[in-house]
Amino acid sequence: MIVDSAAAFDVRDYLRQEMMPHFLCPGCGHGIALRALLWAIHEQGIDKDTLAVVSGIGCAGRLSAYIDANTFHVTHGRPLAYATGLALARPDLHVVVITGDGDCLAIGGNHLIHACRRNLKLTCLMLNNEVYGMTGGQVSPTTSESRLTSTTPHGNAEPRFDACALAAAAGASFVGREGTRHVPKLKELIRSGLVHPGFAFVEVLSDCTEIFGRKNELGSSPEMMLRQKSELRPSAYRDTVDTPFRSNDLPTGILTKTERPEYGAAYRKAAAAQRASMAKASAAKSAAAPAKGTP
């Protein structure tokens, strides 16, 4: 039952309370996603001092400022690249990336696919609200077709990215998706990502109620959240008989989980081997040197 774990977790222990209330709009799903992340961190027993959160630009990017940890709010689209440097240089840190759909898939798309390929231990939380909220509601790579945004006044004509399919195709060893409606499930998904020994990509379906919701007449925050539930079903139900009657192009849960060598560990292992063989060679050289000089 959820009660036990939730009772032990007070989100305020992980927030910079002097920064509260946060700047997000009323009903914004990002706050819920932040809770799920912090809950997972709490359950996993990750020390705030060794937790590093790197975030990009946009509404999602601002979340790091509220987390009582080592937080880095970097440039637009680049949090994965910053995190790659940080995690490679400091394997003792637990590095989490918070990014938005535009940050991660548009301006930062190249970094995402290469992070997936490289498989460095990082947890990437992509908060997908289908829109550039902070800049006033422009179309994003995940905006559904026909949706109205401030740059698609007649409805979006571009197909959207399936971020999870993209990450999986790029070789991510852990891919999962969940909505903010299901907080315990979302927390579990993130927790699985945190413990995954490699690059973990978690897409969180979040609601932009004030801008995207309003523009598309999706109703109040609670209504958007309830619709989110009706549109999502666990991936396990994908092949059941009722599939033809309900669209299910956004399966949830853990979608990919494979074992691949973690990049940082593999690099350090190869480097250690290089040092060992060098030490051996120089030892052999110094042993051989006097013998050479005797005659």
């Binding site: 910053y82 240089a89 840190l93 970094h111």
Partner: peptide
């Protein structure tokens, strides 16, 4: 580390230095 592009390279360098 050879990064995926020039931007990622400076970003990774700053990330490492932040560490």
């Amino acid at each position: 580390v050879q990064m995926e592009d020039e931007i990622a390279s400076i970003a990774a360098v700053i990330g490492a230095s932040m560490g």
